[in-house]
């Protein structure tokens, strides 16, 4: 596969800003919407934006997984549960943003502090051009193979541990929700 964006220069910047704006804007909308269904849909949009950001980093396989598994499967599970619970209108009212101004102020400060900390922690990575790195490593030929081989070879232990984790989650979810044993 050709390095779609590495050589594109300005195209890369445009793609990044578009996808980043999409992800951040939909994340904020997700956080502020009253209706849980709207929240889920905005989160799906946010994940599509994140998948776009993965593409600009040439992590193609993860971008596909992000859309197929995350936006597709997990978010549909959320929608199912919201529909299943059939939340009444008063529940929708009750999920409004904070009634106490203090909580809002604290939240805003928290947000600001977190962002400032992350920016200061990522100082060394200003001046590390993504396009430069992508050009240096050359075109990503087969990102499935690049991930799959180490996954089943070097990282077998966490992989097996994950399978136990999923089994525990399945058993637990069934045991918690079934009415009759």
């Amino acid at each position: 596969m050709e390095p779609i964006l590495a050589a594109a220069g300005a195209g890369h910047a445009v793609a990044f800003y578009a996808m980043a704006a999409l992800a951040v804007a939909s994340a904020v909308l997700m956080m502020t919407q009253r209706n849980p269904v709207a929240c889920v849909l905005w989160l799906v949009v946010c994940f599509v934006g994140l998948a776009g950001l993965f593409v600009t980093l040439e992590a193609y396989f993860l971008a596909v997984i992000q859309v197929l598994v995350y936006a597709g499967a997990i978010m549909v599970l959320f929608l199912f549960v919201i529909m299943l619970l059939n939340l009444r209108p008063e529940d929708l009212k009750a999920v409004a943003l904070p009634r106490i101004p203090l909580v809002g102020v604290v939240a805003a400060l928290l947000l600001l502090a977190a962002v400032v900390t992350v920016i200061s922690a990522s100082r060394p990575y200003f001046g590390m051009s993504v396009a430069g790195i992508l050009a240096e490593v050359g075109p990503t030929k087969d990102s499935v193979r690049d991930i799959g081989l180490p996954l089943f070879r070097d990282w077998l232990l966490p992989f097996e541990a994950t399978s136990i984790l999923l089994l525990a989650a399945i058993v637990g979810a069934v045991a918690l929700t079934k009415r009759k044993v």
Partner: peptide, 14 residues
């Protein structure tokens, strides 16, 4: 470390 600790906590959630 991440996966194992999550295995512990997820089991405790249940």
């Amino acid at each position: 470390m991440f996966v194992s600790l999550e295995l512990v906590t997820l089991s405790f959630f249940i």
